[in-house]
């Protein structure tokens, strides 16, 4: 069962990574003048869209998310609505956090918000897929004994690495090298994406090597 889950996770992650690659390559071929630095916002939205669509599809197909108690259409709709609301709220939350961390307040609000959307689709969306719209569970998952399945552990790793990557992405901004990628928010979004990608790689590997120590109380 372990190997099965890990293999499923690895293939899922491969698909997600491939979709991110496609989201970068395909528009470059189709849209004239598309580049990661030049049309950065476009790139951000294309990557976020790809990740969001692929994650939702895969997790829905795999049926990872917690079993719903009711199967009525109304309940499902309200769940969907709440998920969308949470996603939007998390965009706002990330925006505020990034501004508090020193992003310009008014000057490049659109850039900041795009970064927030990217971060949300890399982190919050996964939470939504794995845990459902339940903030309590989200907070609970990020504790030492909070993970209750392989997917929870994977979620911990990818989210932490994504946020860490975005955080580290802020480091080169003050340097006076005058490189194109030092412009706000390119380094941060690149950092987040690289953090996420490394999370995709690290999570299955780490779980594979620590599968003996991992014991989940209830599953």
């Amino acid at each position: 069962m372990w190997d099965h889950e890990i293999r499923a996770m690895a293939s899922t992650h491969a698909i997600i990574a491939a979709s991110m690659l496609m989201a970068t390559v395909v528009p470059a071929a189709l849209v004239p003048g598309f580049s990661v630095y030049g049309t950065h916002l476009l790139w951000i939205y294309s990557v976020s869209g790809a990740v969001a669509a692929v994650s939702v599809a895969i997790f829905w197909l795999l049926g990872i998310s917690p079993p719903t108690r009711k199967h009525t259409l109304g309940y499902k709709l309200s769940r969907l609505f709440r998920s969308c609301l949470y996603f939007f709220l998390s965009c706002m939350f990330f925006h505020i956090v990034v501004v508090l961390y020193g992003a310009p307040l008014i000057d490049s609000a659109l850039e900041t918000f795009s970064l927030a959307v990217l971060l949300s689709s890399l982190t919050t969306l996964r939470c939504l897929c794995v845990l459902g719209p339940n903030v309590q569970a989200w907070i609970r998952v990020f504790s030492r004994h909070g993970a209750m399945s392989v997917w929870d552990t994977c979620l911990q790793i990818t989210v932490a690495l994504t946020v860490l990557g975005a955080w580290m992405g802020a480091f080169p901004i003050p340097l006076d090298w005058n490189r194109p990628w030092q412009v706000w928010p390119i380094s941060c979004s690149l950092g987040a994406v690289f953090g996420y990608l490394s999370g995709l790689v690290v999570a299955p590997t780490w779980i594979h090597y620590h599968r003996k120590q991992l014991t989940y109380k209830c599953k």
Binding site: Y101, F142, G146, M148, W167
Partner: peptide
């Protein structure tokens, strides 16, 4: 800011931020 943020995150990681007996599944 980063280091200050570390305090609640760490507490949460250690399971100290939320009441322990809140979650029966814990």
């Amino acid at each position: 800011r980063s280091l200050a943020l570390y305090i609640p995150l760490r507490l949460n990681w250690d399971g100290l931020l939320l009441p322990a007996n809140q979650d029966p599944s814990k």
